[in-house]
Design a protein around this nucleic acid. Sequence first.
RNA 1: GGGGCUGUAGUUCAGUUGGUUAGAACGCCUGCCUGUCACGCAGGAGGCCGCGAGUUCGAGUCUCGUCGGCCCCGCCA
Length: 588
Amino acid sequence: MKFKKRTHTCGELSELQIGESVVLNGWVDNRRDLGGVIFIDMRDRYGITQIVFEPTFNLQAHEDGKDLRSEYVISIEGTVRKRPEGTENVLLSTGFIDVMVEKITLLNHAVTPPFQIKDDLDVNEDLRLKYRYLDLRRSKMQKNMVMRHKVCQIARKYFDENSFLEVETPVLMKSTPEGARDFLVPSRLHKHKFYALPQSPQQYKQLLMVSGLDRYFQIVKCFRDEDLRADRQPEFTQIDVEMSFVDTEGVFEIVEGLVKQFYKEIKNYDLQLPLKRLPFKDAMEKYGSDKPNLKFDLEMVTLNDVFAASEFRVFKEAVENKGIITSLLAKGCGEYTRNQLDGLTDFVKKMGAGGLIWMRVKEDGLEAPIAKFLTDEEKQNIIDRTNAKPGDLVFILSGPKLKTLTIMGNLRLEMAKRMDIIPKNDIPALLWVTDFPLFEWDEETKRFYAMHHPFTSPDVDDIQYMESDPGRVKARAYDLVLDGNEIAGGSIRIHNSELQKLMFKALGISSEEAEEKFGQILNAFKFGAPPHGGIAFGLDRLVMLFAGESSIRDVMAFPKTSSGTSLMDDCPSFVDDHQLKDLHIKLR
RNA sequence: GGGGCUGUAGUUCAGUUGGUUAGAACGCCUGCCUGUCACGCAGGAGGCCGCGAGUUCGAGUCUCGUCGGCCCCGCCA
């Protein structure tokens, strides 16, 4: 089919081109046939231009224009004309001109789409996902794709300017059962053996440091076979970074520079550096989260000392079991009904809390179901420590430390929503969470796991406790948190094979097992590994937050459903028997 | 693995206590209309009420199961 190359896109014509002959290619967006004259909004990625079919201007074009329908693909030749006085559309950048059509070429028909290609139309997400290629025609989705592209380009430019090399790492690699579940790929050439898709290029980027590449980055797909969430997909993209001869400060400096650049170019916002830092312990105790949302002012207060000698059984147990008693002050919520309080009790119980203690603050003190178990001094201390005023509500939770703090942290977020104290402005609440524990105790398997990953360096002062008291060892690990979302995480790594062996030992991994699973990295470290560290951004999450979306699906071109399927191409799917035979796989 | 929400024209939804022929808006089709831009006006087509059992004289509505979607907890080094 013959058609002319476009002279302009649908987003760029203005009064500057009045009188010019132009060619536009694009889609029929909206059609307004007034009988004597037909207006069509012609759409492409760049915008919308109104084209006009008028019989007095061109009789044949007007005849042809009658047959056009939504989403037809067309090429038109015409003349740019200033719109008549009073018919300008100020909502469109091209709204001061029309293109009077002289010739129209129909490039393709289109059946009526399953949903209208409009931004303000509510469509169920499953339908959008099934027809993702149509969903992506909507300008909102195109804006998101453009923003994602911009974030990548800003990162590439920034890293390039700072001497980072973009290096590709393998997608087929060895399975490392520490951490998330791997996606496995069966090997045809090697019977009964499997590749794994990377959860992150962690080991490769460390090996690149051993190679002396000094500064590496990669915008890279990662895969984790875990249950999904609004901000979690089985395959996702990281901006992966690693640097040699740096400590925590060196990583922070580079990352903060990048984040500043993001805000400058995407939000036109001047981010003040350095960013706030908060040790993990404080984050947990004040906000009940390792990714605290500091957009609003609401802090938890630990009350263990207040109840150190309490006779109230619940508190007494918490103190004796080295648990925690934490409180949250809900200002002005003293009038909450019993029904509301029961709802909040259910809320915390669902997360595993034994119950929720609440106290209404009155002029003459505390009113609460548990008041009779507390001394006057304890009551007064609660008021003083939480800074409660009459009309307020105090929540108290007690139990095992991390679990209880986490539940209170969720209650904090819930109360912030109910109290409507989360500002809707664009000012980012960015901070570093630092000093994570190196190890995390797992009740189920009764052993320590690496909280970050097994290559994370311990705090130098804590190495002495790695065997005797692993729980108190702090890691040189850090997360970057934006408005309550973890957008990046990293650490200074171990670069010494002896320390790495000690780490594996502390994790209960035998030297044989370590050799088998991580032999390459232990071996590499013997050959002069430089001190190094790095970080990885969750690109999807970052773009989601920049775009103001609440799901990363809306910033991914072809995402999966929350059960990990693709409604568009219907995967995962069954495969032919001969494929399985090639792979030496028998299904049960 | 657990909890919650959800499924009715192409789309978004309404549908009363279980009761006649399941409605609205948008979209689609036809006709009229020369300055619309959510064009307007007139007319029309369009339904396996996700699927399967059950209760009932009678089920979109009640019960059970099942499939899909969304959100959360666990999980996510």
